[in-house]
């Protein structure tokens, strides 16, 4: 089998081995400890941590080589000391869902957009931008979507308090 051929329906161990071979220590696999999760037990979940420089390359690899055609969601989490983007990507044939997280420092909230790999990530990234202030480089149209254009703050950050929410 040639090096860059697409594997249509890779199983979990294949995915793990291939990514390990390609990216080495840049991608860290998170082991889950759930006993009762059906999907985990049957090998349909894979959790990976990576850094924001490897992310785009990893996504492209997962999309082109491992046939993960569909991005379910792109989201962001505000961990107060840093930001994080989370990607859920699935393969139609195996039903396997890959979760990729990438940390982003607070003072430089930039990450490469994956919209040119999956067009479906477009609005998710816009949403993450307007709600968390993460700037997706190379995004075709990074504008506010759900909130009014006049907003100058990012309402889903932990620093933005709702009425009734304690100030800590």
């Amino acid at each position: 089998m040639p090096e860059d051929a697409m594997i249509e329906a890779p199983i979990k161990t294949d995915v793990e081995a291939l990514i390990k071979g390609k990216f080495g220590s840049k991608v860290v696999f998170r082991q889950n400890t759930k006993k009762n999760s059906k999907a985990d037990n049957e090998g349909r979940r894979l959790y990976m941590d990576t850094d924001r420089d490897t992310l785009y390359e990893l996504c492209q690899y997962v999309h082109d080589r491992l046939n993960f055609e569909h991005i379910i969601s792109v989201t962001a989490v505000d961990w107060v000391d840093h930001m994080q983007t989370v990607y859920h990507i699935t393969n139609y044939l195996t039903g396997m869902v890959v979760e990729i997280t990438a940390d982003i420092p607070n003072d430089d909230p930039h990450i490469r957009s994956v919209t040119d790999i999956w067009e479906g990530a477009n609005w998710h990234e816009r949403e993450a931008y307007e709600l968390f202030g993460i700037i997706f480089d190379n995004h075709p149209k990074l504008e506010r979507l759900l909130t009014p254009k006049s907003y100058e703050f990012y309402p889903f950050r932990k620093s933005y308090k709702l009425r009734g929410q304690p100030d800590e």
């Binding site: 055609e69 569909h70 991005i71 379910i72 139609y92 999956w118 067009e119 479906g120 990530a121």
Partner: peptide
């Protein structure tokens, strides 16, 4: 359909078996 992230019956009407 796969690239645009369309799911559900709209996707299955386009031949994606998922």
């Amino acid at each position: 359909v796969a690239n645009l992230g369309i799911t559900g019956p709209a996707m299955r009407g386009c031949g994606v078996d998922y």
